[in-house]
Amino acid sequence: MLEGKFEEASLLKKIVEAMKDCVSSCNFNCTENGISVQAVDNSRVLLISLLIEKDTFEEYRCDRNITLGVGLGSLSKIIGNGANSDYLTISADDDADKLNIIFEDKVKDKISEYNLKLLDIDADLLDVGPMDTDATITLPSADFAKICKDMKVLSESLQIIVTKDSALFQSVGDIGTGNIVIRPKTDIDHPEESVTISLDKPIDLSFGSKYLSDIIKATSLSQKVTIKLTDQSPGVFEYKLPSGYLRFYLAPKFDE
């Protein structure tokens, strides 16, 4: 038996919105410690790794490990029926073929209950493991989203060049070029506005703009995004949850 109660439906809404355009369906792996997902997009360029730790929930129990195959478009439709501020409880029996979803209005005496049919998903997982990191950038997630959107008007690729004291986002396209430079900044009054760059080795990597457009759909999950870059390796883009994370691993583009 799995049962997890979110203090606010908005958190699961945001998680599903951040994932559903990248992967249509995925397995939710439920254990006593929480719920995790690994899913890869159809082109096998972008990997999503989600961890919702037990502490994220108002109440949580999972007596036995269970895997729930979920169509994210369908889940999104049902979750969309609840108000952001509702309590949201998901539950499933051990051999369930459906996921039970209950919204409780905190003011009105109103309870809405839905069942989502589960899917049998045969996922082949990738062994991501711990990765070395040459450069780490942490910046406001809204700023990163704007950089990605602004640069996408120029090119299908976004080049990220990190040196000791700056990160350069560069786009070179048919209509012209664009450069955005950000530098470390400590904002004591508004720590969420701070920018940090730590560097072991300079970085010059290019990523597909269309995949970055998918990644920045997670912007509402966290005020900050952490970007971990390693030479000749996938970039890791991490949005922290109250307890857990939503991470994207994006394979880079290379010169032909």
Partner: peptide, 14 residues
């Protein structure tokens, strides 16, 4: 132009 790589080039299967 640049060529998109695949995650399978970096990560093995579990």
């Amino acid at each position: 132009s640049k060529k998109q790589s695949s995650l399978a080039q970096f990560f093995g299967k579990t």
